[in-house]
Amino acid sequence: MREKLLEIRDLKVIYKTDEETVEAVNNIDLDLYKGESLGIVGETGAGKTTTALSIIRLLPYRVAKILSGEIIFNEQNLLELSEKDMRKIRGNNISMIFQDPMSSLNPVLTVEDQIAEVLRLHMDYGKEMIKKRVKEVLQLVGIPHDRMFEYPHQFSGGMKQRVGIAIALACDPDLLIADEPTTALDVTIQAQVLNMIDELQSRLKTSMILITHDLGVVAQTCDNVAIMYAGEIVESGTAKDIFEGERHHPYTEGLFGSIPNLDIDEKRLNPIQGVMPEPSMLPSGCRFHPRCPHCMDICIAESPQSKSFDGHHIKCHLFL
């Protein structure tokens, strides 16, 4: 029996600056079940990070506004919690791994101090116990614990990200949000770090949201997939639905078309025509229609509803 851990309903987030209003996330729905992993895929600017930051409520202060929606985590609506209650959840029940390991660790504190901090905040441990747990999580991510007194600048990028993962896992969270955890790393290191995340996630039975723009990564690690475009989730379902299903949103097809296929000897890639619209000037109707090869009149006029095929959701007029 799948048990729901996180449920996002009708979430809408905007960024309001002096010049413009950016509609970053537009009425999305998402579900995540205990022990499962969900991949969120989309081009840059699609609203992936915004979604993640909404969950832990760390959107940039003042600029970002959550206009509507609820985020139900373990049966409580995170958006209604006080800041104090939310702090108890951050780092403890929900933790996050950030995109850029180079800048995500504090340069003036030792690695030990940075891991111990999260333990001191949430665990009722004594000094010895904290030290023991720090060594334990460092071992978990494959860093020799005699390096715990060193500073971030003494670590390579891959190792810094491992430290980031150690911080995130220190308190055994129920939900781990990894926002493009390997984008900033070397290709060879990327695979190592991803495998490690994947392995730890299934071993510790943590639920995970993995944000990426790489479909290959998702295929390798995730149980479920959501495809994001211009602040909307255009298609979602199990990994099987997305990678083997026959029905797809044209944008998803476009994404697959832009992956080099070694079986067929293609001369060039087939990237999607055009660019993603500025989120401050979204097109009418379906957000994808200006780039869509199947665009119909209705697509320009009306935004499509999402249609479910046995849990495989597609938001496109072709299937309505």
Partner: peptide
């Protein structure tokens, strides 16, 4: 506004800790 200050917040640290321990020294 740096990433490591956001990391500190994501750990659940109090705003006071974030300012005095993480931001000021840098």
């Amino acid at each position: 506004r740096t990433d490591y200050v956001r990391t500190a917040r994501a750990k659940g640290a109090k705003e006071r800790t974030v300012v005095w321990k993480h931001a000021l020294r840098n």
